[in-house]
Design a protein around this nucleic acid. Structure first.
Lengths: 217, 217
DNA sequence: AAATTTCGTTAGAAGGTATCAGGGAACCCT
DNA sequence: AGGGTTCCCTGATACCTTCTAACGAAATTT
C-alpha cells in the first residue's frame, strides 16, 4: 500500500482507517459499480456513523479520485512487473485483459464514462505515462522500427504523451493502436455488448492482438 | 418523434408530455451526463411538482431506458440513412464519429459504462442488429470477400448477431473490427483520455479508419 | 496535570426517488 | 347536455443520499 509507514500512532491509525474505508469502497464498487458507491453505506458497514468518514475524505469525490488513482497504480504496476521481465506486447495485452476481467468495475473506473465534474489530477497523467513508457519499450524491443506513415509522423511531432522515450514514429503508432484497439474490444466486452452475439470475446481479443503483432488475424 | 399519432386527446396529451419530459432529460444529460439526471429538476423546469412525472414514467430507470432506446434509434437511423444512399465504410465511420461528437453523453448512454442493474431490453438488441446489418452490407459492397482467417471462421459459425445477413466470414470480421476499433478511439477521445497527449484525435480516427479500409495507416 | 488537537457523535439542511390520499378538471358515454 | 368515470396534479410522507455544524469525549502534546 501507499505511505503506511507513519511516525505517530495517530497517523498510523488514520492511514489504517483510510485503507479500511477504501477497501469497503472497492467491495461496493465491485458489486454495483462506482455510481452506487455510498459513504453512508460504508460507514454503516464499518459500524460508525456517516459524518465520521469526512474526517478521512473530504467527500465522495475525493474518495473516488483516490480509488481511480489506486486503480491506475494497480494497472501500471501489473504492466510494469510484466515489462521488466521482458514481456512482449502480446504478453502485456494479456496482462491488461486479466487485470480488466479481474474487476470490470475497476477497469471502468479508469477507462469508462467520465464522472461529471471530475478532472484527472496531474499524478494520474503521470501514471498513464508510465504505462505508455512500458508499452513503448516492449514494442521497441518487439519491432524496433515499424513502417512509417503520415500519422506516425504526426505522432512524432506531438509526443508529449511519450515523455522522453526515444521510440521511433512507427513504434508510437503501434503503441497507440495497441491501446485503442484492445480498449475497444475490452470495454465492449465488459459492458456486455457482446452478450447474445454468439462469438467468443476472448477469440476476438486474440484476433485483434494477432493483427497488432503482425500475425494473420 | 415516435408514435405521436394517437386517437384520443388524452393519449395525444400524454404522448406530448412524455416527449417534453424526454426533451428536458436530454438537455440535462447533454449538460452533466446521465448520472446527473433528476426527475425533480425536470419537474421543476416544467413548472409541475415532482410526483407528477410518475404518471408518465414508472421511475428514473424507465426514463433512462427510454432515452437509451431513443439514442440507439437515432444512431441506427443516421447510419441507415447514409447506408441506403450507398455510403462506403469510411463514410459510415464519419457518420458514427459525427453522431458521437454531436452529443458525447448520448454516445456514452449507448456505449458507455453499463448502469448497475440495467439489462438491455430485446428491442435494443434488435436496433443493434439493424446497425450491424447496414455495416455488413456496406462492407460487402466495399470488399466482397476479404481474406479468411481462423477467427473469421469462428464468426461464421457464431453469427447470431448478423441475423440472416449473407455476409461471408471475412466481411463479418471486417465489420466487427470496424466497430471495436472505432469505438476504442471514440470512447477514449470522448472520455478525455487524449487531452494533454498532444496529437490530434481526428487524425488518429482517420488513421485507424485507413487501416480498416486497407490504405496505409 | 493542563492545554490542545483529533475524533466520533447527534442534529439538521438541502436534495433525490418514490408512494399514497384526495380534490378537481377533463373526458366519455348515455 | 348531464352524469359517471377516469385521469391528472398536488401536498404529505417515508426513506434515501451528501455534507456542515456544534458538542463531548478521548488521546496526544506541552
Amino acid at each position: 500500500m501507499a505511505g503506511s509507514d507513519a511516525k505517530t500512532p495517530r497517523e498510523r491509525y488514520r492511514a489504517q482507517v483510510r485503507a479500511e474505508i477504501k477497501q469497503h469502497a472497492w467491495e461496493q464498487i465491485a458489486t454495483a459499480g462506482a455510481s452506487a458507491l455510498s459513504l453512508n453505506a460504508i460507514a454503516k458497514r464499518m459500524g460508525v456513523s456517516g459524518p465520521a468518514l469526512y474526517r478521512y475524505f473530504a467527500g465522495r469525490d475525493e474518495l473516488i479520485t483516490e480509488l481511480v488513482r489506486d486503480a491506475y497504480r494497480s494497472l501500471a504496476d501489473a504492466v510494469h512487473t510484466a515489462a521488466v521481465t521482458g514481456a512482449d506486447p502480446a504478453a502485456l495485452a494479456h496482462v491488461l485483459r486479466d487485470w480488466a476481467l479481474a474487476d470490470p468495475h475497476r477497469y471502468f473506473l479508469v477507462y469508462g464514462t467520465p464522472v461529471p465534474g471530475y478532472h484527472a489530477p496531474d499524478e494520474i497523467t503521470g501514471i498513464s505515462q508510465e504505462i505508455m513508457a512500458d508499452l513503448l519499450t516492449a514494442w521497441t524491443a518487439f519491432e524496433p522500427d515499424p513502417p512509417a506513415s503520415p500519422f506516425a509522423a504526426h505522432l512524432a511531432d506531438h509526443r508529449d504523451w511519450a515523455g522522453d522515450h526515444p521510440a521511433p514514429p512507427g513504434v508510437l503508432r503501434r503503441a497507440l493502436a495497441f491501446w485503442t484497439r484492445l480498449h475497444g474490444v475490452l470495454s465492449l466486452e465488459l459492458a456486455g455488448h457482446f452478450t447474445g452475439m454468439g462469438f467468443d470475446p476472448d477469440r476476438l481479443f486474440r484476433a485483434e492482438l494477432d493483427d497488432l503483432v503482425g500475425r494473420a488475424g
